[in-house]
Design a protein around this nucleic acid. Structure first.
Length: 261
DNA sequence: ATGGTGGTCCTACCA
């Protein structure tokens, strides 16, 4: 099975880029974040025409939103609220009767890394606490894959400069600790780092606010694929489609691809 | 220390 996760930053604006990604990768399952389209406006026919008859979408107007496109049938779980908001940041389906697939768009958290001064950062930290509690309750022993734009670059070489980003939201110790605790509690395996040593720089996002993203390569690895430990033996390959950042009118995130038996 | 770009939707807000 080939699985792709991608923060597409507007599904309707980048339908052609999605089509191109599908042509090149032929994924079985595609998890999207920031689709920025409410369900009534979702391009259902276009997506099904790309070869994905099974679609889960949780959208809202203008912001956020996730979708799961699949060649394989799935059972969709009901959407749930996080932090008492229905802001379309999560979806979960069951593949093949026993494999949970979780698709998250974790809050970015604003600019100031202090929950007392910045409600967006407080929201991000609370969201992480709720994900932790959720998995603690719902997960024991279950087979699963967790993907998404987690908006955190946990490792030193998941950012272009560990030292310079310690006070920058996405790489601050408090959020990295919370994400690491979620990962440890579920014994999750980072499927991409399974294939790429931690000493190697690896990014999935580059800011739009740079005239040339290739010049200094100031990226961060915000997009992740984790699997439960029983699936580790089935991991075949994983890679980040860095080249997509050079596509015309790109998303600021690129796709992460996993092959798993 | 600052401002840089791009998305939605029409006035800011979010990334």
């Amino acid at each position: 099975m080939r699985l792709v996760t991608w923060n597409i930053n507007s599904l309707r604006l980048r339908l052609d880029l999605l089509r191109r990604l599908i042509q090149e990768e032929q994924p079985d399952v595609i998890c999207l974040q920031e689709i920025k389209v409410q369900d009534s406006e979702f391009p259902e026919e276009e997506v099904k025409g790309m070869g994905y008859p099974h679609v889960l979408r949780h959208g809202m107007k203008g912001y956020n939103g996730i979708a799961i496109l699949s060649r394989l049938p799935f059972l969709a779980n009901d959407p749930q609220n996080w932090c008492d908001k229905s802001d379309s940041r999560h979806g979960c389906v069951v593949l093949g009767g026993d494999l949970d697939l979780q698709n998250f768009y974790i809050p970015a958290g604003g600019d100031i890394p202090d929950p007392a001064k910045n409600v967006k950062f407080a929201h991000k930290l609370q969201f992480l606490d709720e994900v932790h509690a959720h998995f603690r309750k719902a997960r024991p022993g279950k087979k699963g894959i967790m993907v998404g734009d987690l908006n955190i670059a946990p490792l030193e070489h998941d950012v272009w400069s560990h030292k310079q980003l310690l006070d920058v939201v996405s790489h601050t110790p408090i959020e990295v600790e919370k994400l690491t605790a979620i990962k440890a509690a579920g014994l999750w395996v980072d499927a991409v780092r399974h294939f790429v040593p931690e000493s190697e720089k690896l990014f999935s996002w580059w800011s739009y606010r740079s005239p040339d993203w290739t010049r200094n390569d100031r990226g961060r690895r915000l997009d992740h694929i984790w699997v439960t430990p029983d699936l580790q033996k089935d991991l075949k390959a994983a890679r980040i489609r860095r080249d997509m950042r050079s596509w015309k009118q790109p998303s600021d995130h690129v796709a992460v691809v996993l092959d798993i038996a």
